[in-house]
Amino acid sequence: MATETEAASEGGLVFHPLDQFIPKSLFGDGAVHWYTPSNLTLWLAILVLCVIGVFVLGSRGRGIVPSRIQSVGELMYGFVYKMIEDVTGKDAVKYFPYIMTLFVFVLFANYLALLPMSYSPTSMIAITAVLGFGVFIAITVLGFVKHGAAFLGLFWMKDAPGFLRPIIAIIEVISYFVRPVSLSIRLAGNITAGHVVIKVFAGFAALTLASPAAILGIVAIYGLEILVAGIQAYVFTILTCVYLKDALHPAH
């Protein structure tokens, strides 16, 4: 509200591409505390409802011949299941619910964020960092629980020449600890960038001359974002599978 009146009074181009990421309290205008139900809460709730709609209500009929929504759920189920089997191995199937939850959460958050007026949880670095570091910590703990100190063999290349091994070990350790950072920044960065670009184009649409190009630009970027939303969910999931493979089979 405030920005719009401001823009009207100034009468010029106004860009507030980052304002869409401000959490706003749902009830009243007060400060957003950790427990305050905000637009983030609203869209996370919508996300959970969509998950329930697709996976629970959709498969309600338990049809041998699936209904449309049921077959969408089954498609995602088969997609992630096969990914785990192919990338991580058959022994990782018991972690399927966790990975499926990650995939569905990121995918639905990405796609719901593409609705106009919506709020995008996966553009929050804090949220993707929790996901990324959660995966990282869980996988590291799992590796040590499964293999004990032998898990450190992940960093010690037995195939490399002797004098190179310590150097490679240092690089491996660094790359290992960069994993959660890259995982979370990749997701948040992609989603944030797409939304900001759309907002910037939308700002240009206020100019009569530039508006056709701006609207075309929005359409094009929106199409790209639809791709990015799916691809980022896929990348997040498959990298989780790859990291999980390291924890389960640390020997290269």
Binding site: P23, L40, L44, F55, T101, P121, I127
Partner: peptide, 18 residues
């Protein structure tokens, strides 16, 4: 803290449902 709190709530709900 707000984001993390609601993320954990939503993740827990999603995981439970799934």
């Amino acid at each position: 803290p707000h984001q993390i709190f609601w993320l954990l709530v939503a993740l827990a709900a999603t995981f439970f449902v799934m």
